[in-house]
């Protein structure tokens, strides 16, 4: 299946939160007790049972309030840090661009939690399993729209082939920039290009998104340098010991009586 993309056009979003309800319904995630954090926002982090939520930012400029709304969920990166960090090969990326966790393999170590630049995966401390948005891959692979896209009334969410969605996004961006000059796409190149692509009305910072999200340097160093070099070092030490035993046998050092009591003077 070719690379898919979900375009989140925040200029069309009304903040109705139907997407979060649809997500919970399809994925059978129970409701959680929430409280108002700002005038409209009720959640500011993912949980094992909340895979998508709405953020509301009120920004005042020239005595005018701008209201920025964003549906937050896993970005499904082309270059996913969580997958690289996973200790158990439980996270994989599909051809269609979805990053999915296999809970059968997951051991709940939390390495994905710490390394995701967007704070997406969360570990259930009782079940010892990590959870996040699946992108409704079960629906997508059966030719259904993702639950959130399917339910979106103002048409802020659309789904399709990546190329087509990028074209649509760019066309739409040109339109939106007439009224919002700072509008930009987010996810076209970030993290290798994310399956969930945003049209933002302002810079990512305004939305509390990292401007240049990257695979952490510590993660690259850990998995691509320390792991292979360390393995070779330990293997080298073991090989040196085997060689040492044979060298001593060959030299007849084991039968030398001087050695038995600690060497000659």
């Amino acid at each position: 299946m070719a690379r898919k993309t979900v375009l989140i056009d925040t200029s069309l979003c009304t903040g109705c939160k139907a997407c979060s309800v649809a997500c919970k319904e399809w994925n059978e995630l129970s409701a959680e007790k929430t409280q108002l954090l700002t005038s409209y926002q009720t959640q500011n982090a993912f949980t094992t049972k909340t895979w998508t939520y709405m953020t509301f930012v009120e920004k005042y400029e020239d005595q005018k309030m701008n209201w920025f709304m964003r549906k937050a969920q896993c970005f499904h990166c082309a270059d996913p840090a969580c997958m690289k960090a996973c200790s158990s090969n439980a996270i994989t990326k599909t051809e269609s661009g979805y990053v999915v966790i296999d809970q059968e393999k997951c051991i709940g170590c939390g390495y994905c939690v710490e390394n995701c630049p967007f704070g997406v995966p969360k570990v259930d401390q009782v079940k010892k399993k990590s959870y996040k948005c699946t992108g409704c891959i079960d629906r997508v692979e059966n030719n259904l729209l993702p639950a959130c896209v399917n339910t979106c009334q103002p048409g802020a969410l659309s789904f399709g082939e990546r190329d087509a969605m990028l074209t649509q996004a760019k066309k739409r961006l040109a339109e939106v920039q007439k009224t919002h000059p700072k509008a930009q796409l987010y996810g076209e190149k970030e993290m290798g290009g994310t399956t969930y692509l945003y049209l933002l009305l302002d810079s990512p910072e305004v939305y509390d998104l990292p401007v240049n999200p990257t695979v952490p340097l510590s993660l690259t160093l850990w998995k691509d340098v320390i792991r292979p070099v360390g393995t070779v070092a330990v293997g080298g030490a073991a090989a040196a010991v085997v060689l040492g035993v044979f060298a001593n046998l060959f030299r007849g050092n084991y039968s030398n009586s001087d050695n038995k009591e600690g060497g000659k003077d």
């Binding site: 390495y111 390394n115 850990w222 320390i226 792991r227 360390g230 070092a233 030490a237």
Partner: peptide, 21 residues
Amino acid sequence: VRWAYPVHDLSMFIMTAAAIG
């Protein structure tokens, strides 16, 4: 926390190699 992982592994590899010797 991200830096703790490579530090933990690096210490382990060096100590294991030393322990073998």
